[in-house]
Design a binder for these strands. Structure first.
Lengths: 183, 183
DNA sequence: GATACTGTACCGTCCGGTCGGTACAGTCAG
DNA sequence: CTGACTGTACCGACCGGACGGTACAGTATC
């Protein structure tokens, strides 16, 4: 009877630690305490710290893909360009799952070499996205603006009010539609 | 005889450690070794780890301001909008002083509460910049695109070639000029 | 001899990881 | 039904090393 929710709650606890104390304080003991089990119990699920970090990024990528699917379904899939989907995904992701990106900070801080896979994946999608339709630079601007908005949220720089952010995302989507639909 | 270069080289060593090993491995011993002095010597200059982190962000802010001044001087200061200056500053900064932003990662990972000052400063400048001339959203897009490009460099995601990045920055500056000069 | 700096030795704590053990649920021969 | 056995989940004590920080003696220059 493998309790799936246990692994899940451990990963959530890890994110909480990163967000509250910083990635440098992501220790097995701290995570165990947060998750409400002993260090031994934690080690049972994740035999090394590295395996915990790997699971964190994997979960992040997975949730990101789920969000992308959700957006695609909601748009009706017809004339939705990849760029528009990506921007909306980043928006939904920032709003609801913002904590998940803590995994990125955790990995960069603890085992930078582990982001290799994520980078490759991201790069592939990025280039497919931006070379398909529309001019490169205008599309790239919109993409990086969404990315910048997301990272800026992640680093807690909070330059915008909730309302301003929402409007900015809407603006980005409109611009992306224009750029893609009219050559 | 206060050797200025010593503090300076310690801070540079700290950045190197962050970039090479990750912010979680930023330890006093590692920094001392990189800087070529003993732990005692390091402690003499920075009595606590927190003071080291503070110096790192201070140095980052200082260099950023220097870069901004350099850009302003180079532009001739006449009709250079703040937005254009900011974009060019981020570009020059990413190219030459990219390592400096390691301080940001280090602080977020080790003592997240220390970025309060930086955030306040950034927010002030951001709002002065974007409410002066031009519509808010289009200007914000350009600003966040530059920021996203910078952060993406910092996290080593390397989505663009050197050439593409240069062109994208040029594009950003052109758009910023258009947005600001023609109401 | 004061100032600026460096090195050595050390302390208490924390960290990642190991290990022996426990509780319990299921299984299956007798 | 029972007792022997297995696998899963978890606990908590412990180890060796690393960590932040202290204390202090030594050196080199003015």
């Amino acid at each position: 009877m493998p309790r799936v929710s246990c692994r899940e709650s451990i990963l959530a606890a890890a994110e909480t630690v990163v967000i509250e104390a910083g990635a440098a304080h992501l220790t097995l003991e701290a995570v165990a305490e947060r998750a409400g089990l002993s260090k031994g119990g934690l080690i049972y699920h994740f035999p090394t710290k590295e395996s915990l970090l790997e699971a964190m990024v994997a979960r992040m990528a997975e949730r990101f893909e789920q969000e992308r699917e959700r957006v695609r379904r909601q748009l009706g899939d017809r004339n939705a360009s990849d760029l528009v989907v990506e921007i909306l995904t980043l928006q939904g992701y920032s709003r609801d799952h913002h904590r998940l990106s803590a995994a990125l900070l955790a990995v960069v801080a603890n085992k930078p070499e582990l982001i290799g896979g994520t980078r490759a994946e991201l790069r592939k999608r990025f280039h497919r996205r931006l070379t398909s339709r529309g001019d490169f630079n205008p599309c790239a601007v919109l993409f990086f603006a969404a990315l910048g908005l997301h990272f800026h949220d992640l680093l807690n720089l909070s330059l915008l009010s909730r309302k301003q952010r929402g409007e900015l995302y809407r603006h980005l989507v409109n611009e992306a539609r224009k750029e893609v639909e009219s050559p």
